[in-house]
């Protein structure tokens, strides 16, 4: 069911990872992503896996919950997997049937990509599991603050993102409700070809859009009456301030990056 999609939704816990400054977590995620692209062999992923699992453990987000979140991207994962298996050309043929030819290189590549993608998605979702959207956007706003000099609407974009994140669960629930209501009128979303299925989405999408617009209008009004007038003159209830733990985290990140680069060089 659509409501079961949990990937990217904040998981309330009180852990050291949750308490870290969002800027540290943004940087950490970035470093982690970069580290994934530094290698071209399985062994290179060992430090990345250790790093990720340590973070997951520290975050107190149940491993089960993270695996459940991954279900939402299974389609994407299997697609990449299959594409790699079937379309990678190599020299060592392991299987062939009519026009389908599978090479050892393809299988390796597929395994490699699967690990990389899983780590990549898990890594970035760990950030959203442990950071409230408010803090995340605060962090982004601060991280991109220099762009304000070029008149970039950093505050506005950050606010928009935070609101979007707030409303994702609301809209998911709404989608579920509308789907059920149309099913009760005999709508079928699982039958027929691609075009028929796409057409079957119309009775869901139109009410969903209308509701999203209505919500947007209501929300704008609610923000106005609470004196929202852009970022100017605004104070923060939870201003971002680096603490000792954040500095330590930065040091650990730097160390991790150094190790990864070192191993990467060794392996090549």
């Amino acid at each position: 069911m659509i409501r079961d999609i949990t990937i990217g939704q904040y998981y309330p816990e009180n852990s050291i990872i949750h308490r870290l400054d969002p800027r540290v977590k943004l940087a950490g995620t970035l470093v982690f992503l970069v580290s994934l692209f530094l290698f071209k062999s399985f062994w290179g992923y060992i430090p990345a896996v250790i790093f990720l699992f340590t973070c997951i453990h520290l975050s107190k987000v149940p491993f089960k919950h993270i695996v459940k979140g991954l279900k939402a991207v299974v389609v994407l994962l299997s697609f990449t997997l299959l594409a790699n298996i079937f379309f990678t050309k190599g020299t060592d043929l392991v299987f062939s049937w009519k026009f389908i030819k599978i090479y050892r290189e393809g299988l390796e590549m597929a395994g490699f990509m699967a690990i990389r993608l899983t780590l990549l998605i898990t890594g970035s979702s760990l950030m959203t599991y442990t950071t409230t959207p408010t803090k995340l956007t605060d962090g982004l706003e601060r991280a991109f603050a220099p762009l304000k000099l070029f008149k970039a609407p950093v505050h506005e974009v950050a606010t928009m993102m935070s609101i979007a994140l707030r409303f994702i669960p609301v809209l998911l629930e709404e989608t579920d409700k509308i789907m059920k209501a149309q099913q009760a009128r005999g709508a079928d979303f699982e039958e027929g070809g691609l075009i028929k299925r796409a057409k079957a989405m119309i009775p869901i999408l139109i009410p969903l859009f209308i509701s999203a617009f209505r919500r947007a209008g209501d929300l704008a009004m609610a923000m106005e009456v609470r004196c929202y007038h852009g970022g100017e003159g605004r104070t923060k209830m939870k201003p971002l301030k680096y603490k000792l733990r954040d500095l330590i985290a930065y040091l650990i990140l730097a160390a991790y990056l150094a190790v990864v680069i070192f191993i990467g060089k060794k392996l090549h």
Binding site: K177, I178, A181, A184, I206, P207
Partner: peptide, 17 residues
């Protein structure tokens, strides 16, 4: 079954399209 057991949800007007 769904045509024999008709279900009108809460705020059904939100499903008009």
């Amino acid at each position: 079954l769904r045509s024999r057991v008709g279900l009108v949800f809460q705020y059904p007007e939100h499903q008009l399209f």
